[in-house]
Design a binder for these strands. Structure first.
Lengths: 156, 156
DNA sequence: GTGCGACTTGAAGTCAGCTTCAGGTCAAGG
DNA sequence: CCTTGACCTGAAGCTGACTTCAAGTCGCAC
């Protein structure tokens, strides 16, 4: 048995849950690095799985790929990231997550007041006339992504 | 002075905050209806402003246009929507908003445990191995949209 | 050495929710 | 009547995060 411990893209796909196309995409985007066989096929180090798990966690809380890359780039190049490295990254997202929760709670409170008032007063309704930064982000602004929208044949 | 009380697209744009392009888009998508002048220009009834405010509120809490249309379609065709109509719609979103907040709080708690453990144990980390439905929604799943991502020259 | 599944690439497609553009028309004040 | 700014249309473009496709190559078991 070989102890080289390198994984094919298919294996990484299966273990990480990311489809091969996404793995290739992440590589193109500089989020992953791979070695290649003499024939040009990708071989992944086992550590890519943790990296992918981290990417998934980041994506889940709404961090864009650009920013994920920035974060990962700050991990020291050669050495295995330490606990402190991951912790630093995680902590920076914790604050953001808090803000996002705050924003949603504020929206909910606004919605509550709207339910009470029937939203017939555009002047007074906080949801309709929010003065916070959400409103400043333009017409298309949305607080939550498609994935949390009602999915077909799941909601009821 | 005319008391026809119809608004041009420019006026609606200014009062609603939506650019004309968005208003035309919403009309194409069936979220708004307009009358036309003999020459083909749009004229909006004043009620479109409330409708737009409602659309904005919905969009803000993450409701997609398809679903906004569904909701608006349930408003009785001819008559001005009553307080009860708006309330029903708002209330249906309230539950969703709660769920979304719950999901984020769960993530935050997971992140907290990750900060504690340094996320070196992929088996144990809730964020890295979430067993809830967030994980099932696929690799690209994200809980929060671009608008809440760090904006340039604002964060620090 | 051969068969075949897993792999490779670049290019193009997808989705939502608009925006932008080109080329032309309308409406209203003077 | 004329000018000028607001308006019209359809088509194409944009962003982010991928997916899909076509056509070809690799690697490993038999």
């Amino acid at each position: 048995m070989e102890t080289t411990d390198l994984l094919t893209i298919g294996e990484v796909a299966q273990r990480s849950g990311y489809p091969p196309s996404a793995l290739r995409y992440y590589e193109r985007e500089g989020l992953l690095r791979t070695t290649r066989t003499s024939g040009g096929q990708r071989r992944y180090e086992r550590s890519v799985l943790r990296r992918l798990a981290f990417i998934r966690a980041a994506r889940t809380i709404g961090v864009g790929l650009d920013e994920v890359r920035e974060g990962l780039d700050e991990l020291p190049d050669g050495r295995t990231p330490t606990k402190a490295d991951w912790t630093r990254l995680s902590r920076s997202w914790r604050g953001r997550l808090d803000e996002q929760i705050q924003a949603l709670v504020a929206l909910r409170d606004g919605l509550d007041s709207c339910i009470g008032c029937g939203c017939l007063s555009l002047q007074r309704c906080r949801l309709y006339n929010p003065e916070d930064r959400v409103a400043e982000l333009g017409p298309g602004a949305r607080l939550l992504p498609p994935m949390l929208r009602r999915s077909p044949a799941e909601g009821v």
